[in-house]
């Protein structure tokens, strides 16, 4: 495996120039490749650096293909559905959240990574506008974890709590906290998140 971003982008450019079926390229090429890496990760034959490098290589190509697809009104599909993810208001720790975002993408979610320190009202707005199947919030400090509770409350106030599956994570979070604030899914780490969320959306 080469994890070569440059080569990945070159393939995308060549495909665009040759007017090949781009949806097929994404599904049978890039997605199949990352899923193979994901399977090897699950089997503990490959590790985080491999999966992050593979994701970077995939993105180098897919980011060139996506605007072309949009121009022709096509899409590579929603996969398991849209998953909005961010680090919650007041917290700027993003590495763990970014690992989870990549792993969810590998698993087949259409991930919208909002970034870090995202105001609770903006996450609620994203739930309304993006209409995701799930929304994940990460907190690394007890002082910001409380905003996961505020988020649950605001979703209810805005009448959209039942429209989305809520997922929480980050070092200080626990199943007990998840239960207390009324979130749907607690995940201890990226793999746990993928396993639980795939099961959840598949019902």
């Amino acid at each position: 495996m080469a994890y070569d971003q440059k080569a990945s982008a070159e393939v995308a450019k060549e495909a665009i120039a040759a007017k090949v079926d781009l949806v097929n390229l994404i599904q049978e090429g890039y997605t199949a490749g990352i899923q193979e890496v994901g399977d090897l990760y699950q089997a503990k034959k490959l590790f985080l650096p491999h999966i992050m490098s593979a994701a970077n290589a995939m993105n180098a190509g897919v980011n060139l293909l996506t605007p072309e697809l949009e121009k022709s009104g096509k899409s590579a599909g929603e996969g398991l559905g849209k998953f909005v993810i961010c680090t919650i208001e007041g917290d700027i720790h993003s590495i763990g959240k970014d690992i989870v975002a990549i792993m969810l993408k590998v698993a087949g979610f259409n991930v919208v990574n909002m970034g870090r320190d995202i105001p609770v009202k903006d996450i609620v707005a994203a739930v309304k506008n993006e209409k995701p199947k799930a929304v994940g919030t990460s907190a690394l400090m007890t002082s910001t974890m409380v905003n996961q509770k505020t988020f649950e409350e605001l979703l209810k106030e805005e009448g959209v709590r039942d429209k989305v599956i809520t997922n929480i994570g980050g070092a200080p979070c626990t199943q007990q906290w998840c239960d207390e604030i009324g979130a749907d899914v607690y995940s201890e780490n990226a793999t746990d998140c993928v396993n639980k969320m795939v099961a959840k959306v598949k019902g």
Binding site: K44, F47, L48, A171, T191
Partner: peptide, 9 residues
């Protein structure tokens, strides 16, 4: 370290 195999600090 981030234990790159276990994924934990």
């Amino acid at each position: 370290i981030l234990d790159l195999k276990a994924g934990t600090a």
